[in-house]
């Protein structure tokens, strides 16, 4: 049959294997993080080593990022600083996300009064500027690694808690949860089988979004001098120290860690 069939529409992108690319991207970024952290931990001591004969070198082959005024290699310092920051970020984001999960779920399932209290707390936390609270907590806990981690963890949970509360509330009223309940499913079963699979992606995304946020705030607090102690290599410290040398033309101190 001689039939002219016209193609009305074709997909624009053909055959992109999205799932596989996502998997590869995830593995590569996880590897990068792990390698950075491990390298930084290994380089930690080397990064503290001073060598006044080689101070204030501009970037060259043996010191790709240059050296600072105490002759410390900036590449090693940056690596060590990054690993400290990643560890703080991971710990703070993790704790923060768990607080969010617990409070968000409690607000959604705990009845009207609990919900009102937690919602009020969320609004309160969101109303206060992060950095002020962060400085206060960090200072009260005696600065250092613990102070910064707790400070960041305690200030970053509200937005994620709100998201989780909304998600759980929506699930609680969904028809399939009502149906499961009428079929005799226990609360544990409903929480594990019907709620966890929905909250988990929100939780993971929230955690990942918190992570850079936590690092940034850690660096900010340290920069302001309320965070880590100055001998520790951390991005905030390095930048803070670099500030005073910038006017002397030692740009490499700030550019590479930044």
């Amino acid at each position: 049959m001689s039939e002219l069939v016209s193609v009305l529409h074709l997909p624009r992108v053909r055959g992109a294997e999205n799932r596989r690319r996502t998997l590869v991207a995830c593995v590569v970024s996880a590897m990068l993080l792990i390698v950075l952290t491990v390298a930084g931990l290994v380089a930690h001591d080397a990064a503290m080593a001073t060598d006044f004969t080689r101070s204030n070198l501009a970037p060259c082959l043996s010191h790709p990022f240059g050296t600072d005024w105490m002759g410390r290699d900036m590449l090693l310092r940056t690596l060590a600083g990054l690993s400290t920051s990643i560890l703080i970020g991971l710990a703070a984001a993790g704790v923060s996300a768990v607080i969010a999960l617990v409070l968000g779920t409690a607000a959604a399932l705990g009845g009207r009064k609990v919900d009102a209290a937690i919602s009020w707390l969320i609004d309160l936390m969101m109303g206060i500027p992060h950095i002020i609270l962060l400085i206060l907590i960090s200072y009260a806990l005696g600065k250092g690694f613990i102070g910064v981690t707790v400070g960041v963890a305690l200030t970053h949970w509200p937005s994620l808690a709100r998201v989780i509360r909304a998600e759980v509330l929506q699930l609680k009223d969904s028809t399939f949860v009502a149906a499961a309940r009428r079929l005799g499913a226990s609360n544990v079963h409903i929480a594990l089988r019907h709620m966890l699979p929905y909250v988990l992606p929100q939780f993971v995304v929230g955690l990942i979004l918190l992570f850079p946020h936590a690092i940034l705030h850690e660096a900010a607090v340290t920069f302001l001098g309320f965070g880590l102690s100055p001998e520790q290599p951390a991005i905030g410290i390095i930048l803070s120290e670099a500030m005073s040398y910038l006017s002397a033309g030692m740009w490499w101190l700030a550019v590479f860690p930044g």
């Binding site: 969904s174 028809t175 089988r193």
Partner: peptide, 29 residues
């Protein structure tokens, strides 16, 4: 608690099953 002696079947089955659960698990409920 427990299975209700009155069971409801709805007009829209899409809403009555958990979209992230395989059908065997839904049936097992």
């Amino acid at each position: 608690r427990g299975a209700s002696p009155v069971q409801l079947i709805l007009q829209h089955p899409e809403l009555a099953v958990d979209p992230r659960m395989r059908m065997a698990d839904t049936l097992a409920e």
